[in-house]
Design a protein around this nucleic acid. Structure first.
Lengths: 159, 159
DNA sequence: GCGCAAGTGTAATACCATCACACTCATTCG
DNA sequence: CGAATGAGTGTGATGGTATTACACTTGCGC
């Protein structure tokens, strides 16, 4: 099992998180010949501002403030689409919001721990759980493409 | 494990599903002294029109057609809120849509099988999977309130 | 330096959900 | 009985999220 809950759900030097994520994104995009343009990198940087999911319109406001002119929705949504396609961020459907992926280089399924107190979201990847899901689906004769598991509750620090 | 995938993901006499769901809802509400008013029952009936999740605005249109006058969003959203509170329907966050719950009398966690081909959604409840989720969360020190698991793929009939 | 594909800017629009306020109706309780 | 209460509903307005369509620019291979 891999997880970023020790960072996401605790006090930590977040600037390191943010810088590491950006560096990794740059490396990954270079390796894939995908263009991490300034606009895309700016959005990714804003998303990594914290471990709380961010709504698209919040990003639009922040980007507008940063750039000193009105940024319109498609600009941000296109950047988000790119980042999603590269696995650099995830969308949290229940929140209509986006969060940085802490391990974009690893193929994994979506499993989020959402703290109702501090709002931080940690991501996990657990093979045993993925297998349990696959098994349950198989018993219903269902062929799994992907899944999204959102767990709501209290993180360790907020309990 | 309980599941309605044999019905939802196969040809079946859906009118029976619909009638059974309505009858069960009436019984449950009577037992709980909850008022299943005509407006609420109409919405529930429309939701049970199929095993595909329905958007709120589709319901608004259909209800407007049924009632011969313009129904406005809050009317439908209030009915949806009631039905959600009673556990008679679920919201599928990734779809911004609603679906009837096949076993409202049983306490259970959310687990949906969404077929990308036919659009039908089946619901399951599997204790072993719920436990696996609890265990995974516990390993991250996370206290679970609730969870929502959406599995995308192909149902048996569409494979 | 031409042509093409990818990326961006902009206005408009579609889709999803809630708020605020007025009104009705059933029930309760003095 | 009848006023007070509270749940339910009708209505207009508004807020929040996401996409479409079209014009324009830029990067890059040939």
């Amino acid at each position: 099992m891999i997880s970023n809950s020790r960072a996401a759900h605790r006090d930590h030097d977040h600037e390191r998180c943010q810088n590491a994520a950006l560096a990794q994104a740059r490396a990954l995009c270079q390796h894939r010949s995908a263009r991490l343009t300034p606009a895309r990198e700016a959005v990714l940087h804003l998303i990594w501002h914290s471990h709380r999911p961010v709504g698209a319109y919040t990003l639009i406001e922040q980007l507008s403030a940063e750039q000193g002119h009105r940024v319109l929705p498609p600009t941000v949504y296109r950047a988000l689409d790119f980042l999603l396609a590269q696995g650099l961020i995830h969308r949290i459907p229940s929140r209509n919001a986006f969060i940085g992926c802490p391990f974009p280089e690893v193929r994994h399924r979506n499993l989020f721990l959402l703290c109702r107190q501090c709002g931080a979201v940690a991501e996990c990847s657990a093979d045993t759980l993925d297998q349990a899901i696959a098994t349950t689906a198989a018993r219903a004769g269902f062929a799994v493409d992907s899944h999204n598991l959102e767990i709501d509750g209290l993180c360790q620090q907020c309990q």
